[in-house]
Design a protein around this nucleic acid. Structure first.
Length: 665
RNA sequence: GCCUCGGUAGCUCAGCCUGGUAGAGCGGCUGCCUUGUAAGCAGCAGGCCGCGGGAUCAAAGCCCGCUCGAGGCUCCA
């Protein structure tokens, strides 16, 4: 049971975020990576504050102290949110105050507020014990001549706090006494906190000419999109209220919709959406195979207790779909890594076959993103991810391969209709990697040819040493990662993946993880958001020709021409062009309008005139609806040439519009 | 997980504040019109107003609870 529950009202700027982040970290610690089991720890969240205002609201428990319900305000104070756990004792309480005392000297402050705060622990002591120790702390602090205030114990309190901005302002501590009551000692404040130090990012802009500038010195004029991206990455500031534009679009265009009968983030695909998605899938796959990867297919579910997997899973807890069967606990894959690593673990290969490239398009990967994170096609719980791993003998080979794959990714995005102007690149590495590989990183920037955002860490925290990602910036100024590649230095060992080197000795390879396009759904989100952007600029929105479900629409002037029009359609379709016929009995104008609403690239009206002259009037959406006259063969040649090198699938719906059901609206 | 908003016809939504016969546009169906490059006309059908409880003579509407969903925050390995 909670000793006290607070309604937290926090004022002023980023204090909310700070406190939440801090609380979250504390919970992380509590969840117990570092704290040995059965060890009691006194938990203190220590915040150097400009002020705190708190007000008791109502008694929570029987042993609550007597107090009045007046509002209290303390200025320039070190607030100690304190949770007493089972087994904590006087020695521990005094030890904590000793530490605080030392810390106060550093801060040049001599005022504390002891604030009983149950939420820091899930292993609270009995309230009576806790109150006793809180009083011990208070008395001991006063004895040390610290100006000591205290919030009442056992009350539901409401508080407002303003936290100072300096680096020492927020500290979390816990004090442990090992069972049996040996000497109290300060627990190392956990790997998570140390990890956070490692994770501290420094931001730069890398220029194609090799220059590296601190982000605050860079002039974003002419690079507004990069500016938005940097802002998003660093400050995480977003002001968006509107619905993401691609969501109504995906519905209206009958591409996809939410499936209420499933879990959020699991999407239903209508025929047109399935076609687009399928074409994108074929395209990435073809490109990746052409690059030299071997396509495989692996299971979607894995044994929770498999030793290699368990280790990996523990790093990313609680993001999986779990599956209980009679004899096993399984989880749905959240990436293709497992399946491929398990294959390569059992594969015999030597330096002669390297870099060894394995590819899979996962349909699906599953991540149980928290509710509220899921959004349209941007972020799903079930998504299609092309994933290509390259197993490299050494860093030299990895770097070479890395460049090749960067080019591949740029090429894939470009083919999909996303040019370098549509996304921004970030590159992330450790300081030492940069020092040793300056030229290499400069080469990557040169390949992209535009300034790149660089995130630099002092030490390695993640499993990779180097990573880049291409990020689409949408109409809400949010960034979403598309392609990415990383140099993984940990997983070969974890999965016991080895190759044989020139001397016949087993070695661990470096593993490159690349998604040449990013999630396919996310590519569709980017294309729709891009179309919307174009529309805002006054252009007619459309999808790339090769992805348009209907590429060419024929509109017969009246039903007496339908037969002739069907012949023309047959001729066009024979050239792998998706053509359909609007045989509805509505007016020409209305049918034109409907074709435009469907973003159809070419619309052709066929009547007496066309049939007599054999010259078609072609309405070209790309040319803002301008009507051009051309012969059928010319039209076919023109369209076919634009489709060259792209995958093709036939029309996913009946040829005649009158035969089509309406999936939405 | 937190905050906010929402669930009424196939779709988009109005009505709710101020309780008393359920509304519009689009779409669908039927008929007329046979069309020259972004909405032709008319008629018809279509609703357990998310679910459960309460107060009321009376609830889509007021109160309470639940549920499902969306958007934002956080998160995004």
């Amino acid at each position: 049971m909670l000793v006290a529950a607070q309604n937290v009202f926090i004022s002023a700027g980023n204090t909310t975020r700070n406190l939440r982040r801090r609380l979250k970290r504390i919970r992380l610690l509590i969840s117990g990576v570092t704290a040995p089991k059965k060890v009691s720890t006194m938990r203190i969240l220590q915040l150097h504050s400009n002020f705190i205002v708190f007000k008791p609201v109502e008694k929570e428990i029987a042993v609550a102290e007597e107090t009045n319900k007046e509002e209290n305000r303390v200025e320039e104070v070190l607030v100690l949110f304190t949770a007493i756990e089972e087994g904590d004792d006087t020695a521990l309480a005094q030890k904590a105050i000793d530490d605080v005392h030392a810390f106060l000297d550093k801060l040049k402050v001599n005022r504390i507020l002891i604030y009983p705060f149950a939420h820091l622990s899930s292993n609270l002591s009995k309230p009576s014990e806790a109150l006793k120790l809180i009083k011990v702390m208070e008395a001991y602090a006063k004895q040390k001549e610290i100006e000591t205030y205290r919030a009442p114990f056992g009350w539901n309190k409401q508080f407002t706090i303003s936290i100072k901005g300096h680096p020492l302002a927020e500290q979390s501590r816990f004090y442990a006494s090992i069972e049996g009551g040996e000497e109290a000692k300060e627990e190392t404040v956990s790997e998570a906190v140390r990890a956070e130090e490692k994770m501290k990012s420094f931001w730069y802009i890398l220029q194609p000419d090799g220059k590296r500038e601190a982000i605050e010195d860079f002039d974003f004029k002419g690079y507004e999109n990069l500016g938005k991206f940097a802002k998003y990455e660093i400050a995480k500031v977003r002001a968006s209220q509107q619905m993401p534009p691609h969501v109504p679009l995906m519905k209206r265009l009958e591409i996809a919709d939410y499936e209420q009968g499933s879990d959020p983030g699991n999407i239903r695909w209508y025929p047109k959406g399935r076609l687009i998605k399928s074409l994108l899938e074929q395209f990435v796959t073809a490109k990746t195979i052409a690059y030299g990867a071997m396509e495989v297919e692996t299971p979607v579910m894995y044994d929770f207790n498999h030793p290699s997997l368990a280790d990996y899973l523990n790093r990313f807890p609680a993001r999986q779909y779990l599956l209980k069967t009679e004899d096993k606990e399984l989880f749905l894959r959240f990436a293709a890594c497992f399946g491929q690593f398990l294959i390569v673990h059992d594969t015999q290969f030597s330096y002669k076959q390297m870099p060894l490239k394995v590819y899979e398009l996962t349909r699906y990967s599953f991540r149980r993103e928290k509710s509220g994170e899921v959004c349209g096609l941007r972020r799903l719980r079930a998504f299609t991810m092309p994933d290509c791993h390259a197993f490299c003998a050494d860093l030299k080979q990895a770097k070479q391969e890395f460049k090749t794959r960067f080019n591949l990714s740029i090429d894939v995005l470009n083919g999909m209709g996303l040019s370098k102007d549509d996304y921004e690149v970030a590159i992330r590495f450790t300081e030492d990697f940069y020092e040793e590989n300056r030229d290499f990183i400069a080469d990557l920037v040169k390949i992209y040819g535009k300034p790149i955002l660089a995130e630099v860490w002092k030490e390695r925290f993640f499993y990779f040493r180097l990573k880049w990602d291409c990020n689409f910036i949408d109409n809400q100024d949010k960034a979403a990662a598309l392609s990415t590649d990383q140099i993984d230095v940990e997983n070969a060992k974890r999965y016991e993946i080895t190759y044989v080197d020139e001397k016949g000795e087993k070695q661990y390879p470096l593993i490159l993880h690349c998604s040449p396009s990013g999630a396919i759904e996310r590519c569709m989100y980017a294309l729709l958001e891009k179309a919307y952007k174009e529309q805002q600029k006054g252009k007619l929105p459309m999808l790339p020709l090769w992805l348009s479900p209907t590429q060419l629409r024929l509109i017969p002037m009246s039903d007496k021409y339908i037969e002739k029009v069907e012949e023309i359609a047959k001729e066009i379709a024979a050239h792998c062009i998706r053509v359909d016929i609007d045989d509805h009995a509505s007016t020409l104008q209305k049918r034109i309008r409907e074709a435009e609403m469907e973003w159809i690239p070419y619309v052709i009206v066929v009547g007496q005139r066309e049939l007599e002259s054999e010259v078609l009037s072609v309405r070209d959406r790309e040319a803002h609806g301008k009507v051009q006259n051309m012969k059928l063969e010319e039209l076919i040649t023109k369209v076919a040439s634009k489709l060259e090198g792209k995958p093709f699938k036939p029309l996913p719906l009946p040829l005649n519009l009158s035969k089509r059901p309406q999936f939405y609206g």
